[in-house]
Design a protein around this nucleic acid. Structure first.
Lengths: 195, 195
DNA sequence: GTCTATACCGTGATAGAC
DNA sequence: GTCTATCACGGTATAGAC
């Protein structure tokens, strides 16, 4: 992290990749342009040649994360079939999207709402959560998910579970993304107790 | 939040309560001493009469959260009986501890590791997670929890689920703390699918 | 595309009066 | 216990040379 990544030539894209990594270690507010400059191997001033400033890097990152998440909702598996199947599909695919797009989604989930960019991101996150909560409610109405658990509470718990993966998952670690997504979906739908 | 809370006389304790709330809205790094002063209804300088500085407020807060969490591990329900029961007990009690001590635990879970105080807190969090992971592993060995899910992965998912409660639970909201703890424990052990 | 130099402001923190 | 005044520092961002 203190090590400069030495790129002969930077682009907005390469700079974004560096910035998101640093943001995720130090936190967005805890990251200075000096931190970014060191990590990118260039000076603070040079960064402004590529992007308008720190907040634009944040905006680019969370936009990418949100595009990926909303993309899941329009896939056939999320729009066709029984609600319980669509719910399970979205849970699994959201989890996969999260691990495949890890740094960007991680940053999105840590946004606090101190700037306009952050507040817009939070608003879109709420909309995404709402869309999935509707799926869960439909599956409960169909009698395919337990009715003794409150629908709103259920979808919040499931979402919390999916989102919490960013706190520990590391690509190249012992688990593959699909293994995590499968285990998570299995835990949610089947529970943890031995049969 | 922009509204001063107007306390005639502050103590380190009353200041801590204010600070933790502001930290949880703005983020620790995103909070300035000026923000704290406004929220407390006094000036920046007056804050230093009560506490050494911003980082001490963070240290007091995370220490309180950690004391509560480790307290769960020495309760009889966590030390006596079958591993699966101790595991279920700890999951439920940790969840209760979290909602009853919400602002302090929330702050603890958002610490990034930029200062010595934060790194010590992260270290103790890891130790707590490890203790519970051992419980889960023992329950799997006993054949009381599913063996087809990896033990480490399982405890990570369960922990992520418990910790994620801070992201949406609000005291005085529709759900009581015990309702959340019961639903969460039920989801983990029983699963979500209708029987 | 990157650099050095610099403007300008908000930050955490202190001194000393009341 | 709180205030006003002030400090040194590091923050984001810009200007202009190479």
């Amino acid at each position: 992290m203190a090590v400069a990544k030495r790129a002969d030539r930077h682009t907005p894209e390469s700079l974004l990749a560096v910035a998101v990594d640093v943001f995720n270690v130090r936190g967005y507010d805890g990251t200075s342009m000096e931190d970014l400059a060191k990590a990118a191997g260039i000076t603070k001033s040079s960064i402004y040649h590529h992007v308008a400033g720190k907040e634009e890097l944040l905006r680019l990152a969370v936009t990418r994360a949100l595009d990926g998440l909303f993309g899941v909702l329009v896939e056939p598996g999320a729009t066709e079939g029984a609600a319980v199947d669509r719910f399970a599909y979205v849970v699994r695919r959201t989890c996969l999207e999260l691990v495949e797009n890890l740094p960007y989604v991680t940053l999105l989930l840590r946004v606090r709402g101190n700037t306009a960019t952050e507040r817009e991101a939070l608003e879109l996150r709420r909309e995404f959560d709402h869309r999935v909560a509707e799926l869960a409610a439909a599956a409960i109405s169909d009698g395919d998910l337990r009715a003794d658990l409150d629908p709103r509470l259920t979808s919040r718990l499931v979402f919390g579970l999916v989102n919490s993966v960013v706190e520990w998952y590391r690509p190249g670690g012992p688990e593959s993304g699909t293994a995590v997504a499968d285990a998570l979906t299995s835990l949610v739908l089947g529970g943890l107790r031995a049969r």
